[in-house]
């Protein structure tokens, strides 16, 4: 069983990210899935999160008390939810906004900056994050995510979302390489 949380401000597309991941896992990777969400009254701003539980077996309780992966789109989410990460868990944070991380297994990837600079639309930072997530942690196949996007995203913005997914995967690869290198450097020291 894997528990993933997307967390950030309302309007950052967390609910969509959760929905796409859940759809990819359930419909295309044939897993058992539950996606839940929590959000404030604000349509934009305010704290928002989406949790996805993916398992090979039936999931009885939809809200596990630990996280395996936290995808945090802002500092507040890092501060608030890092403690819920299980031992051996992973924090993937948006380096555009997050400056301080305390969790040991952590990747900083500038989702929003990539979305803004490479894709010209900040709104697709959520899909960039999704791409980085599946590159770094697996969880579901890229093909499944692409198919879920095709199913759930309106035709007009599908192309940019698919590009965002690719950009995310690439950013994930770079982050993994950077980590490897850093670890090598550390070994030398």
């Amino acid at each position: 069983m894997v528990v993933v949380r997307f967390a950030g401000y309302g309007g950052q597309g967390l609910l969509t990210a959760g929905l796409i991941l859940a759809d990819a896992a359930a419909v295309y990777d044939k897993k058992k899935v539950i996606q839940t969400q929590s959000y404030g009254a604000e349509a934009r701003g305010g704290a928002s999160r989406s949790d996805v539980v993916i398992s090979d077996e039936d999931i009885i309780f939809p809200k596990p008390d630990h996280l395996d992966i936290l995808v945090a789109m802002n500092q507040l989410s890092v501060d608030r939810y890092s403690s819920a990460l299980a031992e051996g868990g992973t924090l993937i944070a948006d380096g555009t906004y997050v400056t301080t991380v305390t969790f040991p297994d952590c990747y900083l990837v500038p989702f929003t900056r990539i979305a803004r600079e490479k894709l010209g639309r900040e709104i697709v930072a959520n899909v960039v994050a999704l791409g980085a997530l599946i590159e770094l942690k697996g969880v579901v196949s890229k093909k499944a995510v692409a198919r879920a996007l095709e199913q759930r995203i309106p035709q007009a913005t599908l192309e940019i979302n698919l590009k965002a997914l690719e950009a995310g995967v690439k950013a994930g690869q770079e982050a993994a390489k950077a980590r490897e290198k850093a670890e090598e450097d550390y070994d030398i020291v």
């Binding site: 929905l19 859940a22 359930a26 419909v27 897993k31 058992k32 899935v33 539950i34 996606q35 839940t36 969400q37 999931i59 939809p62 809200k63």
Partner: peptide, 9 residues
């Protein structure tokens, strides 16, 4: 609110 907004396969 949980059951109403929850997604399941």
């Amino acid at each position: 609110a949980v059951v109403g907004h929850m997604r399941e396969d």
